[in-house]
Every structure is written in structure tokens, then in C-alpha cells.
Design a protein around this nucleic acid. Structure first.
Ligand SMILES: [Mn+2]
Ligand SMILES: [Mn+2]
Ligand SMILES: [Zn+2]
Ligand SMILES: [Zn+2]
Lengths: 147, 147
DNA sequence: CTTGTATGTGCAAATATTTGCAGTTCCAAG
DNA sequence: CTTGGAACTGCAAATATTTGCACATACAAG
């Protein structure tokens, strides 16, 4: 579950320093589970290490994203969320009306996506796509609302 | 080209007021063309109407998005960009390394996407997807960088 | 175990975006 | 053509995120 030991090794072997802050932040994302915001990570980290700063959390989360250790979930009108990359690969459907976020398996979407954009010489590395639209309920409501 | 007349009718018939600010902002997005930021829209609008506020621009742009008159382009580490919805439907490939943004036709991606997420009862209405990854050049560089 | 130094951190300020609120204005109803 | 009131706006403050910089520290080399 919460074994972020290998993850810390990735940091080292990529040439980055293994600081207490980075370990705390890594542990926070692993421990909290699911999607977490920078603010939530900070709150957890500060229980053990009160002087860690929010900017360090942001910087570290982006570092972990660039190393592929965590994934970013970014949707308009909500703070960025982050999640361990060891979770099953998936995308998210974001309802623009009620705000609900639902996970869907990465496949077959990822494969199709990869094939289509490969024709443009592009290599998508984002396994965590935010697809905007309307959930079933909200879509039904919009339809009835017309008349 | 710049005929946003029908667009203003959409605002009215959706029950929103047709204010000078909304017309100026609409015209700005039509006139400037391509992807524009709130800041750019403000600069253009203020030439004719100096007291318009940036918050009004943000609010109005989001209103126009919700009415389907313009599209939002939202990628991490860059301000949101907006574009008239009358442009040919397309998505964007965003290189996470060099920052380049390339347009790709909406089809066949949109159709595939729609089919796949329909199985989850979801109706994607976002024809302006930001797909993250590496462009051809940057991908080549990463490969050679390994060795 | 030192030590030098590039990397990383805390803090504060900058930037990007959103929100609350009091005053203004569009426009439906008369 | 008025006019009342909800919708809208400007402004300022709040919130979200990024950045500059001086100081701290991980860690490679000795
Ligand atoms: Mn997720
Ligand atoms: Mn576009
Ligand atoms: Zn919904
Ligand atoms: Zn690139």
C-alpha cells in the first residue's frame, strides 16, 4: 500500500536530493490516497513537520509529476489534485454542471488516443485525462429543461 | 468573419442581459482571433471602454463558454485561453517539455471519445481537449538523452 | 568525518483567478 | 416613456499558484 520506498529511489536516481520535505510529501500522497490538493498535503505534512511551506509542496508535487511518480488532475474552477501513479491507470469524466468527477479505466481510451495522435508525431504521456461534459443525470435535466 | 451578431442573440435568448461589456468582450474574442487570454481581451476592450474590469472579463468569458459561444483552453502552468466556437472543431496537443501547442482536427478523436464515454452515461461536450505529452522533437531528445 | 557548493527551502512578494458586496443598469411590465 | 427590481459591474479583498532571493543543507569528493 503505502510503500513509497521505491519512489524515493526514483528521486535519487534522477539526480534530485532526497530531502525530508520530499519524503514527507511523498508519504502524504501515499497515505491520504485518492485525489488530494496541495492544501491537504500541507496539512498532513505539517503534523510531523510544521515549518514546511505551501510553495515547497507545490514545487515538490510538480517534481513528482515530472518524475512520473504522481499524476496531476487539473480541471477549471477547482484546485489541482494529485494522486499516486501506482493507482490503476484511468481517466476522469468531469460534469460541468454538478461538478461530479467519475473515474473510467484508461483502456481502451488511451490506446485509441495514442494511435490517433501518433499520426501527428506526438507521444501522449498523460494517463489522467480530464474529459468535460455532462453526467447522465445532468444531461437528462438539460433535455427536459428545453421543451 | 467578425459577425458576432448571432452570438449576441444567443445571450439574449438564454435569458441573459445584453450589456455593452458583453458585446465588447464578444467582439474582442472575434476580432483578435485564435487563442486569447483574459488579459489580452481586457487590453483590447479597454481601448474602447477603459473602465471595464478584469473580473468582468473573466466572468463574461466563462458565461460565453457555458453558452457554447467560445471554447476554453486550459493547460497547467499557463493562463487560460479562449477562442470563438465558430472555429473549425479541433483539439490541442500540448508538449510538456517545450510548451508548444499544436491543433489537430476534432475527428476522429471526438467520435471515438464520445462512443467510449457514452458507455458510462456521459456526454462529453468539450470539443477542445488538451492532450499532454511530448512533441516529436522533444521525444527524440529524451530518447537520445538516455543512452 | 569534514567541507564546498549546487540544490532546495522558507518566506515574502508577484501573478492568476475568484468572490463579496454596494452601487448601477437593463428591460419587462405598466 | 417611466419605473422596480433582479441581473450585472467595478472595485477590493480573498484565494490559488508561482517566483525571486537569501539562507540552509544534502551529498560528492577528499
Ligand atoms: Mn485520478
Ligand atoms: Mn483551439
Ligand atoms: Zn452532473
Ligand atoms: Zn516539445
Amino acid at each position: 500500500m503505502s510503500c513509497y520506498h521505491q519512489a524515493s529511489e526514483v528521486i535519487r536516481s534522477a539526480g534530485y536530493r532526497l530531502t525530508p520535505q520530499r519524503l514527507f510529501i511523498l508519504e502524504a500522497v501515499y497515505h491520504l490516497g485518492g485525489h488530494v490538493t496541495a492544501e491537504q498535503v500541507l496539512a498532513y505534512v505539517q503534523k510531523s513537520s510544521p515549518y514546511v511551506d505551501l510553495s515547497t509542496v507545490y514545487r515538490t508535487l510538480e517534481l513528482l509529476v515530472s518524475l512520473g511518480l504522481i499524476r496531476r488532475f487539473s480541471a477549471p474552477n477547482r484546485p489541482n489534485e494529485y494522486e499516486v501513479a501506482t493507482a490503476e491507470p484511468h481517466h476522469h469524466l468531469v460534469c460541468l454542471r454538478c461538478g461530479r468527477v467519475e473515474a473510467v479505466p484508461a483502456e481502451p481510451l488511451s490506446t485509441v488516443l495514442r494511435e490517433i495522435v501518433a499520426a501527428h508525431g506526438f507521444t501522449p504521456d498523460e494517463t489522467h485525462l480530464a474529459i468535460h461534459g455532462l453526467c447522465a443525470e445532468c444531461h437528462a435535466q438539460e433535455r427536459s429543461h428545453e421543451a
